[in-house]
């Protein structure tokens, strides 16, 4: 029983990690007023770059940093189109997803003449925190986790501090709620939104890297498989709040853990694994239809900023 609990908790933590990271990415972009449907593509690019850089350098930490840079680079056209050219943000997000998946699979086929990268031998392995990792159940799952999990926890706390306790964060949120008022107060809406979208690229790409050099050990076209969209759902389910999104992402990770371990713990006899996979999406719809409404979303979300217009 203890073993089973430990096992479920471990899997939950592992599978929530990329969702948490990508959701934090989405948080920055959306709080500044830019819809980010492109999380999926940013994660795909992160996963791809992390895998190939880790393979060629033999150092997964370099892979992680390269993924972050790639995420920022891919987020740049998103920012230019959505902010400077005032394009429809959802449409641009769709284009980013197309581009990331197309380009990464194209390059994988070009580089390795196969549908997937070779196996990454040196991954970012779990790190045990001395002492704490000996706590029963909690220890092996939280204090003997992938470095990505520690990064994710730090990112959540930092995101909270940055968004709610610093001038920068206050400005970023102001730009997402009332851009014209913010502009009048001397804040550059354009600069804030660019910064937010680029941060979102870096964070979502780390989430993607987690999939290819920690949870998995290769990149193929099914590596991300919709997790960017689950992260987006977690962000909304968590009411665009760092800790809310953390909770939602963990819960969705739990659903993934159950669907993966259904066979092992005998759950699949009663509930097909697909039903568990469906759960995050059904819950998000129910949540949106009942308690999370339009009222919680940043009020300027999705609206391009036109100087001087009302």
């Amino acid at each position: 029983m203890i073993d089973m609990l430990t096992n479920i908790l471990q899997t939950t933590v592992l599978y929530s990690t990329p969702l948490i990271l990508a959701a934090m990415g989405g948080l920055f972009s959306e709080r500044s007023g830019v819809v980010n449907i492109g999380l999926e593509g940013l994660m795909t690019m992160g996963a791809f770059i992390a895998a190939i850089t880790s393979l060629s350098t033999g150092n997964p930490w370099i892979g992680l940093i390269a993924a972050m840079i790639a995420g920022v680079i891919l987020a740049l056209p998103h920012a230019v189109a959505a902010i400077t050219f005032k394009a429809d943000q959802v449409v641009i997000g769709v284009a980013i997803n197309f581009l990331a998946l197309g380009l990464s699979v194209y390059l994988v086929k070009f580089m390795y003449d196969a549908g997937q990268t070779p196996t990454v031998q040196k991954k970012l392995e779990a790190v045990a925190i001395p002492g704490l990792s000996k706590i029963p159940i909690l220890g092996p799952s939280i204090f003997q986790a992938s470095p990505f999990t520690y990064i994710a926890i730090v990112v959540v706390i930092l995101s909270y501090i940055i968004l709610y306790k610093t001038t920068f964060g206050m400005r970023l949120r102001a730009v997402g709620e009332h851009p014209h008022a913010a502009e009048t107060a001397g804040i550059s809406v354009i600069a804030m939104r660019y910064t937010a979208v680029l941060i979102s690229g870096a964070l979502a790409a780390i989430g993607g890297a987690c999939l290819s050099i920690s949870i998995g050990s290769e990149f193929n076209q099914g590596t991300v498989a919709g997790q960017g969209f689950i992260a987006l759902a977690a962000l909304i389910f968590g009411k665009w709040n760092p800790f809310g999104a953390l909770g939602a992402a963990t819960f969705f990770g739990f659903a993934v853990a159950l669907s993966l371990m259904g066979q092992l713990i005998g759950l699949s006899k009663y509930v097909p694994s697909e039903v568990l996979s469906m759960l995050p999406y059904v819950l998000t719809i129910i949540a949106l239809a009942s308690f999370v409404g339009r009222a919680v979303a940043p009020s300027a979300l999705g609206k391009p900023f036109e100087k001087g217009s009302r």
Partner: peptide, 20 residues
């Protein structure tokens, strides 16, 4: 690799949407 076409499609969406 046929995935190149996905890149071209993405670019078409991008150019039309951003009204380049």
């Amino acid at each position: 690799p046929p995935e190149l076409i996905r890149v071209v499609v993405a670019a078409i969406i991008f150019f039309v949407a951003a009204n380049i």
